[in-house]
Amino acid sequence: MIGVCLKWVDRRPEPAGVGGGPDQPDERFAGVSAADQAALEWALRQRDLAGGEIVAVTVGPAAADAVLRDALAAGADRAVRVDRPFGAPSRTVADDLATVFAEATTVWCGDYSFDRGTGSVPAFVAAALGIGQALGLVAIDVDVAGIGALRRLDGGRRERLAITGRAVLSVEGGTALLRRAPLRGLLAKPVIDVVVPAQRIDAAHPADARPFRPRPRAFAPPAGSTALDRIRTLTAAGATVAHGETVTLDPPAAAERILSALREWGYI
């Protein structure tokens, strides 16, 4: 099974919900992001090359069926909607998706949505399924043998990946343009499976309803007799970096060392 995650969201630049909570999208302006469209296109290309069944899934109310109808028209084999109110928390959405994708070999996601979500759903899906993740892909090469991808890293760097096992992949919108659905596809009567999750939650989860605000951190007042000195202290301008080391360790030990170093340096 090849899974595709599609987020039904208001595509207007300033929907009513911005800053005021996850309002229900206006159905006329709702759809999926270019990144989600690219994810569907990559799933179609993968199936066309290697075979398999594409299952498109969204989490949302009945109005979200529209994006699944479009996916079926474009060529998806099956569509599933997990019935939840709009605005469920990322982890809940990911758990819902993972339930459907239990047998999936590859799960394709867009790496962003129009409503400025946290972008954490793909990672949560991978964690829930216990499989690998390759997020923020800027170039993809689908082959019968596997998937090659270029991943965006901080600082303009790139990482080349060869994906051979089960994985969740999130892609940028520019990687592919979704093929235009044929007229017959649009006219076909779509069948959408609706899954009602056992766990019900409120639509407006407080943690997700607020606009993004970085957490405040308490700092001691900077030392210095003049304002300039205090700014230098505060920003560490001109100071040499006091920490940083190169070590060669196996992955678990490296992860442990990174965490301990971050704790030592006061970052976590």
Binding site: R179, R180, A181, P182, L183, L186, L187
Partner: peptide, 9 residues
């Protein structure tokens, strides 16, 4: 004829 693939109806 429409602008879609297989676009005749």
């Amino acid at each position: 004829v429409t602008d879609r693939p297989d676009g005749e109806l």
